[in-house]
Design a protein around this nucleic acid. Structure first.
Lengths: 248, 248
DNA sequence: CGGGGGTTTGAGTCCGTTCAAAATACGTGG
DNA sequence: CCACGTATTTTGAACGGACTCAAACCCCCG
């Protein structure tokens, strides 16, 4: 039931320079004093994760936070029966594990890389110090958390009120913003970082149900699926899926 | 489908003194400077809500926040099809609407009183000023939001992985902490502020399903239900409901 | 006593699940 | 580069939990 597990190996250490980091002006960590960036640059630990490798695991003590330099990371939650859901995808510039850090306890989720990803780990002490010296930094985390909470509440409503097919269509519409490329012919093409069971875990459904629903969407000409590639010939058809209510 | 609606009337103005408020030391607003409390006391607007009356409605501009002095408030979210869920219950000392305020936009939820409740409304400007002068206040909202996010993520997992009966048992266990009284004979008694459809809205189920599930729990001797009163003769039986996994 | 909402009960249906097996993709080692 | 073993995805058939629709019931209040 749990997805990751092919790569018990550790991520490799790599070297990244904070001053030239591409995320300098789009992460929560932008606008730090040069002196703070200097400290950060010296203290941070940069790691290269292969798909399936874990950034941290549910239940572990929270020893710091993780900033994604490149790649895609899945945040998951499991219950005592072994059920898991994929709560959200995180991308370059985003900070992972900040919630558990701010709450001060141990990790309430797990995080694993979906594709090759480089991530900088910032220790507990460094985060505290930076947070103390930069009130604006804390404020940015508040904004981020408010957004995550809004997304989570939307998911609660969706999951308990809308059928899988509509949730899947909704997911594809979200994913197209980041993973979609529009061809000259007006045909939209997505290259997803997600396996079928990841899609299932996001929607709170079984992989079998996802396979069947994808098939149904193909039959109706809404999209074509081949591995992790999605072809959407007519975006309006996909938009109809989320507009038209279940019944008629 | 939407629950509130019996009381289109406005809540009545009442007068409450911040200095003698019972929530002085348990709300997010504790430990303010006396000067700040003085300003708060003059500027706040205190209102008495009857069951069903709305504190604010989804889509409205967010003009401030609401601190519950007494009572119970339901925070709900609706989608464009008219589906609604009850996201959380809030009680004396808790602040409602803070998330939408911090995010800076309009309300993404609605809030309504479940029982007679008194609530203090603090305007946008006052909150900003207090937040600027008291970094600790912001920090307390962060803790609170982290907790709400954790709860929301738990709900996502529960809703998509556990059957209604187990979620209902889980809910009763949560509610007993606040609404339960233990009799001398070891019999637990709950007096809920919730109607059947509120329970349904919390669990993301239909009222009919809740009626049937309550009936099933009675048949199995786990609990007895009469109106909003719940009798739990043996807590262990209820605990079993959330421990034993669906199958056997 | 007569509404009017909320709740319960009943019957039937459907969506998504479960279980099992076949088909496909994929990484590995020969 | 191909063959093999494993993991993932797909398909099929059957089940089942929760939903829908509808009617009866209840309780509270006027």
């Amino acid at each position: 039931m749990s997805r990751p597990g092919r790569f018990p190996s550790k991520p490799a250490r790599v070297s990244i320079n904070c001053f030239t980091c591409q995320n300098r002006d789009r992460s929560e960590w932008c606008n730090l004093d040069p002196s703070d960036v200097k400290v950060l640059n010296e203290r941070k630990l940069c790691l290269a994760y292969a798909p399936g490798q874990m950034l941290y695991e549910q239940g572990e003590a929270c020893e710091g936070i993780f900033v994604i330099e490149q790649g895609t990371v899945a945040v998951r939650k499991a219950d005592k029966f072994g059920n898991t859901v994929l709560l959200r995808l995180c991308h370059a510039g985003e900070t992972v594990g900040y919630r558990d850090f701010l709450a001060g306890g141990s990790h309430t989720t797990s995080a694993d890389a979906l594709v090759n990803s480089t991530v900088c780990r910032i220790g507990r002490g460094e985060v505290r110090a930076l947070l103390d010296r930069n009130p604006a930094l804390g404020l940015r985390f508040v904004q981020r958390m408010a957004q995550d909470l809004e997304t989570a509440e939307d998911a609660i409503l969706q999951t308990s009120a809308l059928p899988v097919r509509m949730r899947l269509a909704h997911l594809l519409l979200m994913l197209k913003d980041r993973y979609g490329t529009m061809g000259d012919d007006g045909v939209l093409k997505l290259e997803l970082p997600l396996a079928r069971q990841d899609i299932a875990a996001i929607l709170g459904a079984r992989p079998e149900t996802i396979a069947r629903t994808l098939h149904a969407l193909e039959n109706d000409g809404v999209a074509r699926f081949s591995g992790r590639t999605v072809i959407i010939p007519d975006l309006d058809l996909l938009l109809d899926e989320v507009e038209r209510l279940p019944g008629p």
